[in-house]
């Protein structure tokens, strides 16, 4: 079983972090993972994207050209990558940031006003956690428990309030993903 993911958005939206959390969680579950970012000046304010692969087998190419999952946090990301999603694959996107959405009918589309939901939870920082939750809710690429474990070890001492918000955000995302 191999899952190929692209996360894409504006630089600063945390799309690289989404990929990193997924790869990290996959690694903790004993899977093979890779994380390959776009790099260079385009990251500063332009579009940024990352290819993440989670697999039971050693990963040959770390480059993802036909993703199983696309997380898009802006409209240009949908234009650029959605046409390449494998039929039957998953598109997660923020309706607040992607007004035109996606016209494909042969993929599973999960959309929500992610940025607004993050504000409701109480932090702009949890946008990427809602998106990860949406991925977890719909696919079995990683487990909620791995995310919880990872976040807890990272944030428990440093910022327990943000930890709680993150976990709420993932659960919210999972509800959306399951729907």
């Amino acid at each position: 079983m191999k899952t190929e993911i692209i996360c894409s958005g504006f630089g600063g939206q945390g799309v690289l972090t989404i990929g990193k959390f997924i790869a990290q969680a996959g690694m903790k579950e004993g899977k093979h993972v890779s994380w390959l970012p776009s790099y260079g000046p385009e990251m500063r304010g332009g579009t940024a994207n990352v290819s993440a692969v989670v697999s039971d087998q050693p990963i040959a190419s770390p480059i993802v050209s036909t993703p199983d999952i696309l997380v898009a946090l802006n409209q240009p990301s949908i234009e650029k990558f959605a046409p390449h999603i494998r039929p039957g694959g998953v598109l997660v996107y923020d309706t607040g940031m992607c007004p035109d959405g996606c016209k494909r009918t042969d993929i599973q589309i999960i959309s929500a006003p992610i940025s607004s939901l993050a504000k409701e939870i109480g932090s702009d920082k949890v946008v990427n956690m809602i998106a990860i939750g949406m991925v977890i809710g719909r696919t079995n690429v990683i487990k909620y428990e791995s995310m919880e474990e990872d976040l807890t070890s990272f944030l428990k001492e440093r910022d327990p309030d943000l930890l709680e918000k993150n976990l709420i955000a993932i659960k919210k995302g999972m509800e959306l993903g399951k729907a």
Binding site: K20, A23, M27, H32, V33, S34, L36, P37, Y39, P62
Partner: peptide, 10 residues
């Protein structure tokens, strides 16, 4: 190369 430098793996 740049890919190996930039990518993360376990």
């Amino acid at each position: 190369d740049g890919m190996l430098g930039q990518m993360m793996e376990p």
